[in-house]
Design a protein around this nucleic acid. Structure first.
Lengths: 255, 255
DNA sequence: CTGACACGTTACGCTTGACGTAACATCAAA
DNA sequence: TTTGATGTTACGTCAAGCGTAACGTGTCAG
């Protein structure tokens, strides 16, 4: 066996691991059916069926009359408990709300997870047109203002997170490695990253890092707004508010 | 083997089942340590360790530097997804909020789960003194206004849910079987259940059922308030508002 | 200082739990 | 009817996951 791309599964209990795969798959694809899960996860149908039955009996998933699966009540209970247990989220939420109220734009809290940025808290203002945020949504680390997360990583770790070729999303996407590294340098110097439509043409996004006492990056908070109503002065204001909010979060995390 | 109290584990994959035990246990007891989980679940430490490692690698739990475990980021993502996938919760939430705003008291959505009532959605008003509700909290079915859930069950199912001896919580708790059955009869007739301090001395709680098209009970919604500021007129008003809200939920569920 | 007793962790040989194959029933479309 | 999906059951096989035992470590009490 070459086990080229095979993960080293040291001490992981595989049936549980696959069950988590199934659970997260149902989370991502509501009303999915057994066969589709089996195909996507690449496991046999009887195995997936056993998994689903186990999850269902515990209320983590629910089977509809038509045979499709969704998350169940236990998942709600679990998630609610989690929101109060994860310090970062619990602390950030009110600060994020204040930030969103002041800017009247969408604010997010994002962490690095599995080589991507993951939204784990958000605030959306009450106005007709706003940027939509979604808890659980993943975005690349190397494009848009979330690359602030990249900028504050240790150099050797950072390099591993940057793919060989940088995919293009818009005209403004940075696809040149040297340029990206230069930009990361600037971001680190200024403590803020502003994206003018690097991922979506019409959006401006401003992110700052949430740092630990030792300068390591914990998360990023950001404000995203439609480009047409965002002047340079707004960006400056958001930056100040973001830095203030980030400092508050850091402080309240105990540093 | 007598397998007297042994559950029939037909087709359930045990290691996954235990992993769920562990996960829910962490949810219920934040900052718990390996040994305690092992003791409570009654499984060996190596087993639990393997479970925790698997859960941790997927971000469902997180291990602190001191060796205690909490829920992790993935649990948040999961729960958020679940809130949007479970029809009942998604539909009930805005209606519950409206109900809570109108009454200016705490409102809850509760279902039957495992012989208890389980809170799966809530609204708490912005005022200094209010009844606290918590998603995931369980309460008995046979005491307080949640017995509305019991009242609308099919008779044979209902009997199985009522324990041989009814524990007393307060002076007002119904501990007599005949009396309880009589009360359930009234509740079914009136479509509402009012508890004057049956579980907590100082609380008044009003619940109505959310019924399916066929008359089967799906859930209960309730309003709970401190007794000292709740007159009979308030109870009457809550009842009307609750019945209205329950009808809306039923309708929006597609019946 | 030194037992004594927690804690988490590792190693490993044994067993049974969980696996995949194959066959099944059912339905829908061709 | 045939074809090709679906979900499901049954069963014999095998290795995944188990518990035992022993380890290292830290913290109390004596």
């Amino acid at each position: 066996m070459h086990d080229v791309a095979k993960e080293k599964t040291s001490d992981i209990i595989q049936s549980v691991d696959v069950a988590i795969d199934v659970l997260l798959h149902v989370a991502k694809h509501p009303d999915i059916r057994l066969s589709d899960i089996s195909r996507n996860i690449e496991e046999t149908k009887p195995r997936i069926l056993r998994m689903l039955r186990t999850l269902e009996q515990r209320g983590l998933v629910r089977k509809s009359k038509t045979g499709t699966y969704r998350l169940g009540n236990t998942a709600i209970v679990l998630g609610t408990a989690a929101s109060t247990q994860v310090d970062l989220v619990r602390i950030a939420n009110p600060i994020l709300e204040e930030l969103g109220q002041k800017t009247n734009e969408t604010a997010q809290l994002r962490i690095i997870d599995n080589g991507e940025s993951l939204c784990i808290a958000k605030f959306e203002p009450m106005r007709d047109l706003r940027v939509q945020a979604m808890i659980g949504r993943r975005r690349p680390l190397f494009a848009g203002s979330y690359k602030v997360l990249l900028a504050f990583l240790q150099p050797q770790v950072r390099m591993q997170m940057i793919p060989a070729t940088l995919p293009r999303f818009t005209n403004n996407t940075i696809t040149n490695h040297a340029k990206l590294l230069q930009e990361l340098e600037n971001v680190r110097k200024n403590g803020v990253c502003v994206s003018y439509g690097e991922v979506s043409e019409q959006l401006v996004s401003v992110s700052v890092p949430v740092l630990a006492f030792d300068g390591s990056v914990i998360a990023a908070i950001n404000v995203a707004a439609p480009a047409f109503r965002t002047q340079q002065s707004d960006v400056n204001r958001y930056t100040l508010l973001l830095k203030d909010a980030a400092a508050k979060i850091s402080a309240r995390l105990g540093w």
